[in-house]
Design a protein around this nucleic acid. Structure first.
Lengths: 206, 206
DNA sequence: AATCGTTTCAAACGAACGTATGAGCGAACC
DNA sequence: GGTTCGCTCATACGTTCGTTTGAAACGATT
């Protein structure tokens, strides 16, 4: 179980775990370096500052996730150049979300909580990071949806995409908590289909 | 504009505003007391600790909000005893959310951010608080929805209600951020209708 | 073996934090 | 008129925070 990884990676792993458990502001540099068994100064040496560490932790997950989303959108647009179906567009950004945060063992589930925290802890640096990360994806998605739903106004599409993302994010954040006793366990694959069906119908609402 | 209110109320108002702007952990006791023009010790005198102040700020909004939701559900069920329409059920919990979280007042955003923080908080105490606050409402809503949508399974209703709540919550949390430049300002009343239309269609999906 | 860039180390820094204290104040009460 | 009670005040306390420092250890290159 002991870590063969280098200092930088150990810091990233431990920071991700602790940030997701307690929030970025409630985790100190000392908490991280102690648990990672590295020297206190290592964070400032490797990352410059705590803020830069937060950004590094966050980007390590969000960058590949959004790349996968863009790649999936590329794929469905390549298959049908006249414009992909609504369901395919939705799937292209819903599926990578689930696959990129469930898989990993150590900090995999931690990521969705960390992301939830980033949305509710409005530090300007984090807000800028979110904007930078999501704006290109958001614009691509909006453009594809406008093509697929020509009857809807641009702003309707924007808001409905926000609703969809909210449903995805909230499900992701709370799927394992607040479960009534009678609720059967459901596979991720089934949930992806449920989510796509729900939001596709929402997009097609009059 | 000067405040005729007593110290306790001034602290609550200023705390709510500052928490919403900067997040709970980045606002100090001194920030609040300075802006409220009260003594530094006033918070510990009136609330005991900073944590208790946060809870007081949070509960001041969430308790009346959930009471209003239950009252609205009561109202629509009283009007049509055979079971209210889907849209009316959704409206009964969407509308109070928006009306009770500030509306015109500036401190309204505090609630949604505090609430977002609570959702990503793994602390058992906060989880119990959320459960206690939302379980009665959730059960009432599920029961009403089962009646309104007899074709849907219990678990489908549960998940779609979760999606709906996620859309509402995420919209609420980010509606003022991440806005593209072209997006026109929209009234809350319009947003309520958009949200109801979206989620009602989602509930009716095959 | 000597050199040099990179990484780790123990120790310390000043600043900001939440909280505690005891005196001071005006109004209400006996 | 003296005492009590609720509240406000300035000030201090001890802790923890992010960051910095200069030296020591390490590994590769010559």
């Amino acid at each position: 179980m002991s870590e063969p990884k280098d200092t930088r990676s150990r810091i990233l792993d431990v920071a991700e775990l602790l940030f997701s458990e307690n929030g970025v502001d409630r985790v100190s540099i000392r908490d991280i370096t102690t648990k990672a068994r590295v020297n206190l100064a290592a964070i400032n040496y490797h990352f410059g500052s705590k803020e830069d560490l937060i950004a590094a932790v966050f980007e390590r997950r969000i960058v590949p996730m959004n790349e996968a989303r863009l790649a999936a959108l590329d794929a469905v647009e390549r298959v049908s150049p006249t414009g992909p179906r609504l369901e395919d567009i939705l799937e292209s950004f819903i599926r990578p979300t689930i696959q990129h945060s469930g898989g990993t063992t150590a900090g995999g589930k931690a990521f969705s909580r960390l992301f939830g925290r980033c949305l509710s802890e409005p530090s300007p640096e984090i807000e800028a990071l979110l904007k930078r990360q999501f704006e290109p994806l958001s614009e691509r998605l909006n453009a594809a949806l406008i093509k697929a739903l020509p009857k809807l106004s641009r702003s309707d599409i924007f808001w409905r995409l926000k609703f969809t993302f909210g449903a995805l994010h909230h499900w992701h954040l709370t799927k394992d908590r607040f479960r009534p006793a009678w609720l059967a366990k459901t596979e991720d694959e089934e949930q992806i289909k449920k989510l796509i069906a729900f939001s596709a119908a929402g997009f097609r609402a009059a």
